[in-house]
């Protein structure tokens, strides 16, 4: 046999043209969009508005980061909005009943983690399709929220500095939710792209059977992933509760949509196995810029929904072309 070893290129990856487009596509779209809005309303690009935009983006981005893991495994998590509401209500309830706010927040995040793990258990041990399982828990968690709150907002959270800081504070002039988003981004980026956990996530999404036979405990990884998704939703919930200084029983309604849209806009494939969390951040920024820009331009919120939907369709069509 001819010695083919010289064909094996050792050294840096060769990046193909196609790869480059798929990597830079979402970023280009974001830049074009921002230029477009700036031209129509220069106020968009002011530091004040940008910080504002980032803060608006942060909650959706946090949820979308978790959703990225879920979608890479080929799953979906429709329950994030309800998880957000339930964990927020319980957190607020604990604070109102006198628990230390820090402890209450930790408990809230843990609750999000557990609710997510329930999804994971239904999907793995219960062998349910992710869409069905999380559709069911979406209504269950929402229902539990309404039961717990009796349909009324929970107020009287008091004025703990730490708790107010979560949604309203600034660190070196940057809104704290934005800082939190960036920290979570960095951690989850490492988890997905630099650690074995991420490698296993991709393997499960690419071919679950082959991954299992290669010794990956796919059930355990999937449960963890849905738990992370729930946890990210509860962190977003803390930010929202802090900003409003109350927990709303309807908080987070239809948040799953923006999160899924961000992930897809960022180039992660809904069929699993492929995706990048950087893309999701960019996707969330695209959605945020659309919301913020259309507001600035005075477009009615009814039209905003139409525009957002159209943008998603265009993005997916372009993605399909590759």
């Amino acid at each position: 046999m001819k010695n083919e070893v010289e064909n094996v290129q050792i050294g840096n990856k060769k990046v193909s043209y196609k790869d480059l487009i798929s990597k830079l596509g979402p970023l280009l779209a974001l830049i074009v969009l921002m230029i477009f809005v700036t031209v129509l309303n220069p106020g968009f690009i002011s530091p004040h508005n940008i910080l504002n935009l980032l803060r608006q983006v942060s909650t959706n981005a946090l949820i979308a980061f978790g959703m990225t893991f879920v979608i890479i495994t080929g799953g979906i998590d429709l329950s994030v909005g309800s998880t957000l509401a339930l964990s927020s209500a319980l957190t607020a309830g604990m604070i109102v009943s006198g628990l230390d706010p820090i402890l209450a927040m930790v408990a809230g995040v843990a609750i999000g983690f557990v609710l997510g793990a329930v999804n994971g258990l239904l999907i793995t041990k219960g062998r349910m399709a992710p869409f069905i399982a999380t559709l069911a828990t979406m209504t269950i968690f929402r229902g539990l929220t309404l039961v717990y709150t009796d349909g009324n907002p929970i107020t009287g959270i008091g004025d703990s500095f730490i708790f107010k800081y979560m949604g309203r504070g600034y660190l070196f002039g940057i809104p704290f939710p934005v800082v939190l988003m960036l920290v979570c981004f960095a951690l989850l980026f490492m988890l997905l792209h630099k650690m074995t956990f991420g490698r296993k996530t991709f393997a499960i999404g690419g071919n679950e059977k082959a991954a299992y036979i290669a010794g990956i405990k796919s059930d355990r990884i999937k449960i963890m992933i849905y738990a992370i998704s729930g946890m990210m939703a509860s962190i977003a919930g803390i930010i929202i509760t802090s900003r409003l200084n109350s927990a709303q029983p309807t908080a987070g309604t239809s948040y799953e949509m923006d999160a899924i849209a961000s992930v897809v806009l960022g180039g992660t494939s809904l069929s699993g196995g492929r995706g990048r969390i950087v893309g999701t951040l960019i996707g969330a920024l695209i959605i945020g810029t659309l919301n913020n820009g259309l507001n600035l331009l005075g477009v009615s919120s009814f039209y905003q929904q139409v525009v957002k939907g159209i943008v998603i369709i265009i993005a997916v069509l372009i993605d399909r072309k590759k």
């Binding site: 991709f202 393997a203 690419g206 071919n207 059977k209 082959a210 991954a211 036979i213 196995g273 492929r274």
Partner: peptide
């Protein structure tokens, strides 16, 4: 194909 490889990886 089904059990040995993750084709897209």
């Amino acid at each position: 194909k089904d059990e040995g490889l993750i084709l897209e990886d």
